[in-house]
Design a protein around this nucleic acid. Structure first.
Length: 111
DNA sequence: TCAATGACTGAAA
DNA sequence: ATTTCAGCCATTG
């Protein structure tokens, strides 16, 4: 793979990198910010390749605040630990006070 | 090339 | 209320 997929993925990485420490966002929020809120799956898929990027994928969860992608990390609770390390409370893969730590790119960044 | 899958989400039954 | 369906589109078999 060379040109990868670009555009969508690239933007996903870009936004993910903008996520402040101690905050989280959802795949749908990113997709929505990219103008394709129905492409949330692609966002998650993009995260699949985020390993080689500097993308803090652990800050991206589904709309429920559930760490659905934790299985993609090395350890079993690595993702959870990373989040807790940033001040985000996580219990059983579920982010506590999700709406409080939720970071919406099109809302915080933008406009 | 076609078919199946996936770190999701919202609407419909 | 819960369960099912459809759409998004790149990746993989």
């Amino acid at each position: 793979m060379k040109r990868e997929t670009l555009n969508f993925f690239d933007k996903v990485y870009e936004v993910a990198k903008l996520i402040p420490q101690g905050r989280v966002t959802s795949y749908g929020a990113i997709a929505n910010y990219l103008g394709a809120k129905k492409s949330a799956r692609m966002v998650g898929y993009a995260m699949n390749g985020s390993h080689n990027k500097d993308v803090p994928a652990h800050r991206v969860v589904n709309r429920k605040g559930l760490l659905t992608g934790k299985h993609h990390f090395d350890g079993t609770n690595l993702m959870q630990q990373l989040l807790e390390n940033e001040g985000v409370k996580v219990v059983d893969n579920q982010i506590q006070d999700f709406q409080l730590v939720f970071w919406d790119p099109s809302q915080e960044l933008n406009k």
